[in-house]
Simulated scan of single mutants.
Amino acid sequence: MSTTQSERLRGLLEPLVSAADLDLEEIEVSRAGRRRMLRIVVDSDEGVELDACAELSRVVSEKLDETDAMGEGEYVLEVSSPGADRPLTQHRHYLRAVGRLVKFQLADGEELVARILTVDDEGLDLEAPGVKGRKPTARRLAFADIAKARVEIEFNRKDKNAIQKEEEA
Results as ranks from 00 to 15, higher is better:
residue 150 R to Y: 06
residue 26 E to Q: 05
residue 49 E to Q: 11
residue 56 L to N: 08
residue 113 V to A: 14
residue 33 G to M: 09
residue 148 K to V: 00
residue 18 S to E: 15
residue 116 I to E: 05
residue 120 D to L: 04
residue 135 K to T: 03
residue 141 L to F: 10
residue 126 L to D: 02
residue 58 R to Q: 15
residue 36 R to K: 11
residue 65 D to L: 09
residue 22 L to F: 01
residue 127 E to L: 15
residue 75 Y to P: 09
residue 108 D to P: 09
residue 112 L to M: 15
residue 66 E to T: 11
residue 32 A to D: 11
residue 120 D to I: 06
residue 45 D to Y: 03
residue 95 L to G: 03
residue 148 K to P: 02
residue 84 A to R: 02
residue 80 S to E: 02
residue 138 A to G: 03
residue 53 C to K: 02
residue 32 A to Q: 12
residue 145 D to E: 15
residue 52 A to S: 13
residue 46 E to C: 03
residue 126 L to K: 11
residue 19 A to P: 14
residue 143 F to K: 12
residue 126 L to P: 06
residue 48 V to S: 01
residue 24 L to E: 06
residue 140 R to Q: 06
residue 82 P to N: 00
residue 55 E to R: 11
residue 57 S to F: 02
residue 59 V to F: 11
residue 118 T to P: 12
residue 45 D to A: 10
residue 69 A to I: 01
residue 102 V to W: 06
residue 113 V to P: 05
residue 49 E to S: 02
residue 150 R to G: 08
residue 112 L to G: 02
residue 123 G to T: 14
residue 119 V to D: 05
residue 145 D to G: 01
residue 115 R to D: 04
residue 104 F to H: 09
residue 130 G to C: 09
residue 127 E to W: 05
residue 53 C to A: 03
residue 37 M to L: 13
residue 95 L to M: 14
residue 98 V to F: 01
residue 19 A to M: 06
residue 31 R to D: 07
residue 65 D to Q: 11
residue 51 D to I: 04
residue 71 G to R: 09
residue 28 E to G: 13
residue 24 L to G: 03
residue 144 A to D: 15
residue 42 V to I: 05
residue 64 L to W: 03
residue 133 G to W: 03
residue 22 L to V: 11
residue 25 E to P: 10
residue 145 D to I: 07
residue 150 R to W: 09
residue 89 T to Q: 14
residue 101 L to M: 15
residue 57 S to N: 14
residue 24 L to V: 01
residue 115 R to K: 13
residue 58 R to L: 14
residue 137 T to S: 11
residue 109 G to Y: 08
residue 71 G to E: 08
residue 30 S to D: 03
residue 54 A to R: 07
residue 54 A to V: 10
residue 22 L to G: 10
residue 112 L to F: 11
residue 120 D to G: 03
residue 100 R to S: 12
residue 16 L to T: 01
residue 37 M to R: 11
residue 40 I to M: 00
residue 98 V to E: 15
residue 47 G to M: 07
residue 144 A to Y: 07
residue 91 H to F: 14
residue 88 L to Q: 10
residue 150 R to T: 12
residue 48 V to Q: 00
residue 63 K to F: 02
residue 99 G to V: 13
residue 82 P to V: 00
residue 67 T to E: 10
residue 18 S to C: 05
residue 111 E to M: 11
residue 38 L to H: 02
residue 129 P to S: 09
residue 99 G to M: 07
residue 23 D to Q: 09
residue 136 P to Q: 10
residue 138 A to P: 08
residue 80 S to Q: 02
residue 78 E to K: 00
residue 130 G to M: 08
residue 36 R to H: 12
residue 81 S to R: 04
residue 23 D to P: 04
residue 96 R to L: 03
residue 99 G to L: 12
residue 76 V to T: 11
residue 98 V to Q: 14
residue 20 A to S: 15
residue 84 A to V: 13
residue 42 V to M: 00
residue 118 T to S: 15
residue 113 V to E: 15
residue 139 R to A: 13
residue 33 G to E: 08
